[in-house]
Amino acid sequence: MSLKVNQNESIGLGEQQFQQFCKLFIQHSDKISNGWEWRQKELNEGYMVKVLLRCKDSKDDLRTRDDQDLQCREVDPFSEEKVNVVNDTEEAQVTTSELIRYEYHVVYSSSYQAPVLYFRACYSDGRTLALKEIWESVDDYYQETLSQGPWSTITQQEHHILGQPFFVLHPCRTSELMTPIMTGATKEQRNVNYITSWLSMMGPVVGLDLPLSYATALSQCYTDLD
């Protein structure tokens, strides 16, 4: 499946298209056990979620079993979440005080006709990371790029669906970033997953990397949804 657009036409993603792309994305996530899931909230409204643990000052993700003690204090956002957790050998090498729990949400914005990346993080004692700490965790390259554009700034705002405070990469330039990619795919008659292409650009800014297999996973189901 891919969006078919004309050259120089600005890309706008419909909510149904968003959900179809997410479905295909999660199918591949399930295949490689990458931890993404779909969270349905209303009949026609939902979002993608991934939760992971990371050692402070490290870019490596830790897979762990469900840990009910590792929750953020301000709200009770994680009661339904599934956490990907580490084996005992890896756990023994890391003290809980060094662990940070990251929660990433991919949510559709009708205003921008684009996906939005929401995220939040907390220490093992429940303290949430402040915006200053989030900025400090961003790679130097992305800090410089964010300050110059075309990336938007990391801000804090209310989650569109949950009504809870999250950090967010503002989507105002998403169409500008995605239009050349989707236009090129149309011209070359290639199937491209909008969510995969978008998240591969936006995710690394906040420490969320995609395995390369997402970029090469063009199964028959893409064509079936066209």
Rank of each mutant, 00 (worst) to 15 (best):
L62A: 09
D60I: 14
Y47R: 06
L99A: 01
D60Y: 12
V107D: 03
I100A: 01
C72F: 06
V51W: 02
Y47Q: 04
L99C: 03
L117C: 03
V83A: 06
A92P: 00
Y104P: 01
V75K: 10
G46N: 05
C55S: 14
Q68I: 14
H105C: 05
E42I: 06
D67G: 07
V75D: 12
S111E: 15
V86A: 15
Y118T: 04
Q93H: 08
E103R: 12
F119K: 04
V106E: 01
T64R: 12
D61M: 08
E80D: 12
E80K: 07
L62W: 09
T95I: 08
F78L: 15
R101Y: 01
Q93R: 14
L70C: 10
E81I: 03
E74D: 12
T89E: 13
P115D: 02
T96F: 04
V75C: 09
S33H: 15
Y104Q: 01
E103K: 11
V83D: 07
V94F: 08
F78P: 00
S110P: 00
N84H: 11
D88Q: 12
R73W: 02
D61H: 13
A92R: 12
N84K: 10
A92V: 00
L117E: 03
R39H: 09
N84D: 13
L43P: 00
C55M: 08
Y104L: 02
L62G: 06
D60F: 11
G46C: 02
R39Q: 11
T96N: 07
T89K: 14
M48Q: 05
Q71V: 12
G46V: 03
L53G: 10
N87I: 07
N34I: 00
R54H: 03
D60S: 15
S33Q: 14
R101W: 00
W36A: 03
K82D: 06
K50E: 02
V85N: 13
V107A: 05
R39W: 04
R54D: 02
Y47P: 04
R63A: 13
V94L: 06
R120I: 00
V85G: 15
L99G: 01
E90K: 13
F119Q: 03
T64E: 14
S79H: 11
D60M: 11
S111L: 13
S33Y: 12
D69E: 14
S109A: 09
V107C: 06
Y118K: 04
T64Y: 14
G46I: 02
L53A: 09
D76R: 10
K56S: 13
R101G: 01
P77Q: 11
D76G: 10
V106M: 04
D67E: 11
L53E: 09
D88R: 11
D60P: 00
R101N: 02
V94W: 06
Y102H: 08
L62V: 15
M48I: 05
Y104G: 02
T95W: 05
V49F: 01
S111H: 12
D88N: 07
S79Y: 10
V51T: 11
E103Q: 06
Y112W: 15
R54M: 06
V85A: 10
D67V: 13
L53C: 07
S111M: 11
S109Y: 07
L43G: 00
R120K: 14
V51C: 11
S33M: 13
I100N: 03
V116K: 08
V116W: 04
Y108R: 06
Y102P: 01
W38R: 05
C55G: 07
R65K: 15
R54V: 03
E98S: 10
